[in-house]
Nucleic acid binder design. Structure first.
Length: 576
DNA sequence: GACGCATACGTCACACTATGAAAATAGTG
């Protein structure tokens, strides 16, 4: 079993949790949590770095000790330090930390005084009323624990951004209608455009918070009220999503929006900048001593600490503060920059709409061009297109192009990359097209080296325009397949082909890290919907959000090009 | 435990609030 970064990150997190319960030095605990984050966001497999003999200590937050632990994990799959630490605790103890309201201190008491080692034992003890008399607990806490165990299956999970949007829009519409409510804004990871969100953070401006708060907790989708205070409240909706609400005055709107949008790491970095200037940055404004300096808009808040406005999608403390300070923030790509969509299906394979319907719908959305890219024969169940059917489709496209004004239809294919890296149609057939999209739809579980070779070989075929949904992941559902994506990106740069950012909200494949990597390697990214029906054409907005998180600018995105600019770029990948 | 530098040792990621216990703990971006 190869050790992935996610495994290493999980080990560091578990060590941190156990040290926390043990009451260790908080800075030592933080060092493990920092390292867990670094590893998680790395973008390349640590085991490859170890294999290549690279120096792990150059990574942020990894020193002698943690480098050694990583090497051990890669080579043996185990970590003796964790094993040793685990032996001092019963196995289920870290599960207790996942219960809202239970932190390290209380878990330590539960474990120390009542020998509670699992959620099952916790529930039993709570039912018998044994918890209320422990120091730091009470009757109310005991009830909350019971309730939390009941709803645990539903809460704490993450939601697709598109899924969360339906809840967010309904709730904001409700809040906007309340008397006294001013602006209503969804902040948090939702505003930053994360692929998935854990909760909704909503900000409302109002002179008086009380009525807003009362109406919020009375919203008819509320299943549970977690907190109901003067400036902040929190509920869980029936869908299981948690919603936090804060009410502030207009003069604090910008500061609160900044605070509530996060990320946490970004906020800390900004507040630190403030400290250096002898300023205090909080959700009410920017202050020097007691004196209010700024806070009405986010722009004002940034200006007070000497920065230009930073778009929400960049706020991850991933270099944006430095870039802002040095005046080299990217000018992020926007939806209006996109001129077309280069990946979609029709009813010739598994799409729901006809060629004509897709073309008209695209024209309606203002696109100047689309590519029709149905599946290749390998996908038999859905009737993939062979050479004969492709030729027939080409005729239909030619006719439609003659008929329709203002939109150009390009002839393409989404061709399967076979297990050995061959493409699922002969070169002679592919040569007749305007573009060739290659993708993997089988043999997901090949070992990483083989999977990578498979893709590299496909890219080297004479007709290959772009790699679609490069990692095959389905958010919250299917892990990416094993693939050395940095290597594939480098290869794409050499080969002169492109990489897709699949805009489907369930895929959003590439992720932000790899978008940045592609940009740095000079590989153009194509933001495509992969639509199988007209409504899915609107998914481009999610693709744009992801591209922005990946620091992409207009120039980094293939389908911001005009048709005239695009044609030669495509032709080159087709060996013309 | 990492980091930076006086290579030994002090510093390290902010600022705020709700809850429910009786001062602290947990949780938020």
């Amino acid at each position: 079993m190869p050790t992935h970064n996610a495994d290493i990150s999980a080990v560091f997190t578990e060590i941190a949790d156990l040290l926390d319960i043990q009451g260790e030095n908080p800075f030592r605990i933080r060092a493990y949590r920092n390292a867990a984050r670094t590893v998680q966001d790395l973008g390349r497999e640590l085991r490859d770095m170890v294999e290549a003999g690279e120096d792990l200590k150059k990574l942020q937050g990894i020193g002698d000790d943690l480098a050694e632990k990583i090497v051990e994990l890669v080579q043996t799959g185990a970590c003796t330090a964790l094993t040793k630490l685990r032996s001092r605790f019963p196995p289920g103890v870290t599960d207790l930390l996942r219960i809202p309201g239970l932190g390290p201190k209380r878990v330590k008491v539960l474990y120390g005084d009542l020998k509670i080692e699992s959620l099952a034992q916790l529930e039993a003890a709570a039912r018998e009323g044994n918890i209320r008399d422990l120091p730091g607990f009470g009757e109310k806490t005991e009830q909350n624990i019971l309730q939390a165990i009941q709803v645990k299956a539903d809460t704490g999970r993450r939601f697709l951004l598109a899924h969360a949007r339906t809840y967010a829009e309904a709730l904001t519409a409700y809040l906007e209608k309340l008397p006294g409510a001013g602006r209503v804004t969804v902040a948090g990871s939702y505003r930053r455009g994360r692929e998935t969100v854990g909760d909704l953070d909503i900000l409302v401006t109002a002179e008086s918070a009380g009525t807003i708060m009362d109406a919020f907790v009375a919203y008819d989708e509320v299943a549970q009220v977690l907190a109901h205070g003067d400036t902040k409240s929190a509920v869980v909706l029936r869908s299981g999503i948690q919603v936090d609400l804060r009410v502030v005055e207009e003069k604090s709107y910008g500061a609160a929006l900044h605070y509530f949008t996060g990320s946490k790491a970004h906020n800390i970095a900004v507040r630190r900048l403030g400290q250096q200037l002898d300023l205090k940055v909080n959700e009410y404004g920017v202050f020097r001593g007691e004196e209010y300096l700024a806070g009405r808009t986010e722009k004002d808040v940034y200006a007070a600490v000497g920065l230009p406005f930073i778009p929400p999608e960049l706020r991850e403390d991933a270099g944006e503060i430095e870039a802002a300070r040095e005046g080299r923030l990217p000018n992020l790509v926007e939806l209006k920059h996109l001129r077309g969509d280069l990946h979609m299906h029709t009813d010739a394979s598994d799409g729901k709409n006809t060629l004509r319907e897709m073309a008209l719908a695209a024209k309606e959305r203002g696109y100047k061009y689309i590519a029709i890219t149905d599946h290749s024969p390998r996908l038999k169940m859905i009737g993939g297109l062979d050479g004969r059917k492709l030729a027939r489709q080409a005729d239909a496209i030619r006719e439609l192009n003659n008929e329709l004004e203002g939109i150009a239809i390009l002839r393409g294919i989404e061709v399967d990359i076979l297990e050995d890296g061959a493409l699922d149609l002969p070169d002679a057939v592919l040569a007749t097209l305007d573009l060739v999209i290659g993708s993997i739809h089988s043999h997901f579980r090949l070992p990483g080296a083989k999977q990578t070779e498979r893709v590299l070989r496909a890219m080297d075929r004479p007709h290959f325009t772009m790699l679609a949904h490069p990692t095959g992941r389905l958010l919250l559902d299917r892990e990416p397949y094993e693939l050395d994506l940095p290597r594939i990106i480098r290869h794409a740069a050499e080969r002169g082909c492109f990489i897709e950012l699949n805009a489907h909200p369930l895929r959003l494949d590439l992720d932000d890290t790899f978008c940045r990597m592609a940009k740095e390697a000079g590989v153009l990214v194509s933001i495509n919907t992969d639509a199988h029906g007209i409504p899915e054409l609107d998914h481009l907005r999610y693709g744009i959000g992801q591209a922005r998180r990946g620091w992409l600018e207009k120039k980094d995105v293939l389908n911001t090009r005009t048709l005239k600019q695009l044609r030669p770029l495509l032709a080159k990948t087709m060996g013309r």
